[in-house]
Design a protein around this nucleic acid. Structure first.
Lengths: 330, 330
DNA sequence: GACAGACTGGAAATCGCTTTCCGGGAGGGG
DNA sequence: CCCCTCCCGGAAAGCGATTTCCAGTCTGTC
């Protein structure tokens, strides 16, 4: 391994000078020495040891992103947005996938702290478990105490910079749009009871229907993924309009109806939430609430990096997008 | 920041003892001292500085994955597979997205080298540019010279452990299946000319048709993504069967035909390649060649970590999956 | 022509941890 | 009873950079 010392020796200068030339320093170095060092570094193929730099500087140029599942397009989009701003700033990215295990999430924060990453981005819904949340907050506090920056995409529960999708409002807007189409008997594929994103969307939808004076919808719980939507769709009874709390579940529901010969939107209207890009070409095209996921990821990381003192919360409101999967009723 | 020295002082032991207790060492430490150290570490909330450990040990517990685009389900699946084996081994993961810029790929390898990562996984097709490939090989050689391990998913061009999808064979098998359905006039949505994955699949398809004595297909180049398929689909002329060199392009083509009122499979049959999971619910269901992407990612990382001396190449053959998007012709 | 002040180069301390090397005490065999 | 080995704890030397402090050189001004 070629070290800075090798370069300095080859160039016939001191370690300090070599360091100043090769890594951005405020100090000037004379043109001739500078050239010698640069040539030596190129000849030897010198690569700085980032671990040593991190140790000496006391800060790395890495950021960490923690997601639930990278193969879920929702998180992929979020991560992609964040990674673009990281790349712009010359930062490296560490990604951890928790597969929805909160313990894993805590463990990742600990690891990222140990790695002295510049910032960590928690993308993904909080769960409704005060004990777990408490431990996570503790770990985050430890990290922030040592100068780490944290941002979160999701519920504003951690006292950190947060990009918070307006889940309730988006679901409520959607409910009003669907009611405007004449539907009165609704069902909600509500996802797991403990997941706040799911719960908020469900609550927003239900409340909006109530305030319109419509009958209470049928709420079916299940997994937050395609299989969950697929399974839950068998229990939507007489509903003429079904709201799945995310697009992936909606696609599962669509598959279920298709297999059973139930027409969408002929027999039942279906809507989702998120507006996943990959699903843009689905047939029938999915009615949903659009969230600018890549922007949200980018925004969150920018906030974390931004060095503001007080924690800020940015609400992002989704936009209802009506497509073929719903139609007027009655 | 709490350092190991703080812990040692609080426990009233030496630095060496504290280190031996807290980080797996071969040396034994007496029960009472061990307990004192552990208690002190817990009380203080000690977190080891991984940069310092990496520097002292000369090796990190990080692996790097370089992909083209994380929002492309192909790469997400590959990365997910690899990340699972990393997590099993207690390794952290750094992910870089090049967005198909070969310079970025080289830059990432340099960064990962600087970070002294344990292994690098290059997921993503090589391009047909000897100059770029040469520079990448150079950078990889530098990395491997210092003990780094490398694996690649894609063409076996880098003299590293490789998981190589049998693109030619898969495309040829697909061609034979489609020809077996009675099609004779084919078109290939071939992707960019310089991308080897695209070129291999195209060539496999074309060669197989030739050896069956069928007329040469129409080859339309374009981008390797949804838009590329969408655009290229306008130029498939009289073909009754269209092969898109990946699923995402096939979906774009499907969208194009749908918009123009061209029935699939009624008027034209369409097939893709990869069998992306997210597209499983597409309508019409896509005929494709299934690649076990997560397994391939996992296998590649395992090979890299495996420490074999000679480089190994593992071919993965895809399986033709006939679905609704094609039908018998004539 | 001399002196203050700005620059540039180098020696050495430092970052936090691992690990080699040493020394002292305990245990076992002759 | 002594000696040799084995085991465990500590002191200290790195790992590869950064950065402070010091010294020597130039410039510019009075």
């Amino acid at each position: 391994m070629i070290t800075l010392e090798d370069v300095a020796r080859q160039a016939g200068v001191s370690l300090a000078t070599a360091s100043r030339v090769l890594n951005g320093s405020t100090r000037q170095v004379g043109a001739s020495l500078r050239a010698r060092v640069e040539r030596a570094a190129a000849e030897l193929g010198y690569r700085p040891n980032l671990a040593a730099q991190t140790l000496a500087r006391g800060a790395s140029n890495i950021i960490g992103i923690v997601v639930h599942d990278l193969t879920d397009p929702y998180f992929a989009a979020l991560a992609d947005g964040a990674m673009r701003v990281a790349a712009d700033q010359g930062l490296l990215v560490m990604v951890g996938a928790t597969h929805r295990d909160p313990e894993q999430e805590i463990a990742y924060v600990a690891s990222l702290n140990a790695q002295r990453v510049r910032a960590v981005l928690l993308a993904g819904s909080r769960v409704d478990d005060p004990h777990v949340t408490g431990r996570l907050r503790e770990e985050l506090a430890r990290y922030r105490a040592s100068g780490g920056r944290v941002a979160c995409v999701g519920q504003d529960l951690l006292d950190v910079d947060t990009v918070a999708p307006a889940n309730r409002q988006g679901a409520a807007d959607l409910a009003r749009s669907l009611a405007g189409l004449g539907h009165t008997r609704f069902a909600v594929l509500a996802g797991p009871a403990g997941l706040l994103t799911a719960a908020d969307r469900c609550a927003g939808f239900v409340d909006a229907l109530a305030s319109l004076g419509l009958p209470e919808p049928l709420v079916v719980h299940g997994a937050f993924d395609r299989e969950g939507g697929y399974a839950a769709a068998r229990q939507t009874g007489e509903a003429t309009c079904v709201f799945a709390v995310n697009d992936v579940m909606a696609v599962g529901a669509l598959a279920s109806y298709r297999e059973r010969g139930i027409g969408v939107p002929a027999d039942v209207s279906v809507a989702g939430f998120d507006d996943i890009t990959t699903l843009r070409d689905h047939v029938p095209a999915l009615t949903t609430v659009r969230l600018p996921l890549a922007d949200m990821g980018a925004k969150a990381l920018t906030m974390a990096l931004g060095g503001e003192e007080e924690t800020r919360v940015e609400r992002v409101v989704g936009e209802v997008v009506l497509r073929e999967s719903v139609r007027r009723h009655g």
